[in-house]
Design a protein around this nucleic acid. Structure first.
Lengths: 207, 207
DNA sequence: TAGATTGTTAATCGATTAACAATC
DNA sequence: TAGATTGTTAATCGATTAACAATC
């Protein structure tokens, strides 16, 4: 069965292919994709094999066809509705982040506890957290983003799950876990920073 | 040698320990940390062993001491200077993101190509990209954040590296690589979204 | 001392790579 | 056909876990 890293690599192949297509590539060999993504050519072929994508021996893979297959697997042909909880600095920026629309997702509403943040008239309305459950059920939203302070994150997760949310992207720097049927991805910026600092220090010392 | 996952786990232990300390824990056993972080107890002990952290057989680990050791390893006792390139929505939000100050980092300047974004008087000034090299050399900055559109990211990376930056956090959804002596962490929100969607779909199908 | 926990060595598991057969 | 590339099977590598000795 596929795991997170497999999907991350598929995503990278897809992005590389889109750039290659812009350069008028019609076919690619696993070697081309390896160069473009930093993944080994053998890994590229193994991944495609895992997802039943086959090329032409001697002829490589067709770019258009390959992009279509990857988009299908990654479900890029549907627009996915998300809600967000937490309308602070990061939360507001994410509402306006053009990368999300480009990724084929649409944040349909944001929720907060702070009445000063409510804004029903906005393109993406900011609503009281109490309305979350009804909203999610009514609009059949399956995905959520948590951009609250750390302390609120766990509670928000519980609320999201009980309202029927099945997948969560968490930006709070507390590592969240949920029931098996719920997918949670943690983007921990603090941890990323700590990583960079650690390895830069390490490289600095060895000189 | 430690790898990225090792450091991510150390970061998680540290965060869990800070919460446990707030609950008045004085000692912890590897089992406690396992429960708190979702990592196995054996992995916890192995990690500590890797970093020469030892506890008391029968007595576990002392919380205060352990936090100190982890902070030392993660270099949390120094404030690290960062520059940022890209003052768009996400870039501006990151400038104001309280999580960074909490992580012990300080963004000292932001750079952009758009004159409309320049703001020399701001607490964190937004400066023309042409000034990046001088600024980085003068202030001896070693770390950078890329929050530009995808197309600019590669160029910005080259510029950062040539000015002496050693560690980069990249938010553009293009996978960046650099020379070995440079540490690059890619935070690809599009890819995170694709992951969540994929696994939620997968779970949905199997029902 | 007996019991419980650490810390290390050996075993297992999974992911990546090497080798090579299939085939265009 | 000869040459080059895919795709799969076997081998390797690294990370995680199991088992257990050390010891508080």
């Amino acid at each position: 069965m596929a795991n997170k890293n497999d999907i991350i690599r598929l995503s990278r192949y897809k992005n590389a292919l889109i750039r290659l297509r812009a350069l008028n590539f019609v076919k690619v060999f696993s070697d081309n994709l390896a160069d473009a993504t930093g993944v080994s050519a053998i890994q590229v072929r193994r991944d495609f094999s895992t997802f039943d994508i086959s090329g032409n021996r001697r002829g490589g893979y067709e770019v258009d066809e390959l992009i279509k297959r990857l988009n299908k697997i990654l479900d890029k042909d549907t627009i996915h509705k998300f809600i967000e909880v937490g309308a602070g600095n990061l939360g507001k920026a994410l509402l306006r982040y053009p990368g999300f629309a480009k990724s084929g997702i649409k944040i349909v509403a944001c929720f907060d506890v702070d009445p000063a943040k409510y804004d029903r008239g906005a393109e993406i309305p900011v609503l009281p957290i109490e309305e979350l459950d009804d909203f999610v059920r009514k609009h059949q939203v399956r995905f959520g983003i948590i951009s609250t302070p750390d302390l609120a994150a766990q509670q928000v997760l519980v609320r999201m799950i009980s309202s029927g949310i099945k997948g969560v992207l968490n930006f709070a720097s507390i590592y969240l876990r949920g029931p098996q049927y719920c997918v949670i991805n943690n983007v921990n910026l603090e941890s990323e920073i700590e990583n960079i600092v650690y390895f830069v220090n390490l490289a600095g010392e060895s000189q």
